[in-house]
Design a binder for these strands. Sequence first.
DNA 1: CGTTTTCTCCCGTATCCTGAGAACTCCCAT
DNA 2: ATGGGAGTTCTCAGGATACGGGAGAAAACG
Lengths: 264, 264
Amino acid sequence: MSRTHTTSLEKSLALLRGIVADGGRTPFNEIAAGLDLPLSTAYRLASQLVDAGFASRYGPNLYGPGLAATLLYSQSDASAHITRVARPLLKQLSQETGLTSHLGILESGMVTYKIRIPGRPPRAASFTREGMQLEAYCSALGKVLLAGLQDADLDDYLHEGAFVPLTPHTLIEPASLKQEILKTRQTGFAIDDREVSEDMICLAVPVAGPLGETVAAVSVSMLVGRGQNTDPMGFHPFLETCARTLGELLGAPRDAAQEADQRS
Amino acid sequence: MSRTHTTSLEKSLALLRGIVADGGRTPFNEIAAGLDLPLSTAYRLASQLVDAGFASRYGPNLYGPGLAATLLYSQSDASAHITRVARPLLKQLSQETGLTSHLGILESGMVTYKIRIPGRPPRAASFTREGMQLEAYCSALGKVLLAGLQDADLDDYLHEGAFVPLTPHTLIEPASLKQEILKTRQTGFAIDDREVSEDMICLAVPVAGPLGETVAAVSVSMLVGRGQNTDPMGFHPFLETCARTLGELLGAPRDAAQEADQRS
DNA sequence: CGTTTTCTCCCGTATCCTGAGAACTCCCAT
DNA sequence: ATGGGAGTTCTCAGGATACGGGAGAAAACG
């Protein structure tokens, strides 16, 4: 637990993280205590962070994000970064499974499809395009992403939405949707069984970010004809491996399995 | 020039700045060279930044912003920070001058009034409110903020706009607007002489941010009756002092006077 | 005005950072 | 294949420099 052999830069950056984490609400002495930093050291480091513009003094016992760093990072786009890292992995996933794979992120209540890798053989009538947006409630990707929300945000979504059925299988009851999403949190995957299109089944799992939170989701889609009852769970290990690898590349903590940790 | 006595954290943060500065376009060896860092040292520091999630490896000789830090800082709002720091200064400014003072920032082509401190005596019919948005081309604040744009962005603005005259004095010709803005860049201030309202004159100056760029503008407004010809330039020193102090609090470089440095 | 909390400064010590160079890995041109 | 060059990591010894306990300003508090 106590990582004794921590270098000075590590300490400073951990401190910075603590300072910026919630916009400067955590008292400084708590942050320092949480990192086992002697106060005198913590102050010295903090004042250097301030000098460099990465942090800022908000008040007594209070630091917050610095303007320089805010401006600096405001130009960089998280989803672009994820997309860039993810694309080769999804290509491999489609290679292995022969299925169409997607990566999606949640943007203001809608799923944005950032990556789409066609399966083999490339089925003609696949309707997704990169960059397109789709309602979240009906797709496997969407359900996984919704499962990653905080409880409060999730309830907001469920209460405000007008859920239109795309197929006879689409879930449109807020109650059963919530049920489904809670189940997703436990199992770590979601299935779309012809809920968005009559001939399509999808399986999706979350991708963990640096703090273990869900930053994206990946899925595989299979077309189903009449009668043939293919089970998507056979592909789950491939999908899971892909998502975990991606998460690690994005800096997710080691143990961030398919858990969804929900705070108040 | 060569700051020999630089601490390790300073070096690391300077390196990080260089890495994040333009989304990972600058080759790593150039950054290191620019900071007089031995390559071996630079690599060591960079890999620590990557481990901490503040930077990310984009490719050979290429680093970029890290996802963890991007997510971290994406929650913090630059304009809120500026507003918080600026408010007491504007209060003092209004005290000293007896005029109504404003702080505004540019948001997608419009000026957002973030702070409004009423003058003395509090004139009744002042039409600005905190949080309100106004077209940029007709106010002193707007002209200063436009003057802070890159040339390309400025031209975009001038070409796309439909400039509606609010008073007979409003400039609506793109050419004369550009003229006015170029003059503003040189002089370091802008005047709105009854261009937005028949009975109001404003004087505005830019506020410099951490890189010397314009991040906001402050102004004082005076009501003019018929005949009385008050010269707003008498208040310029007060305004200038306020803007400079604010800039320093925001981490502006010492020498960022009223210069507007324009890059290609 | 006394008391508590926050914060800075000092200073000897040991730590850990430094940076040249060797070594390794790719990648490309020959 | 072979050599060369750029990119990257590793090693290591010496010394700068970061560390952190503690004293005591300096604020906030009551």
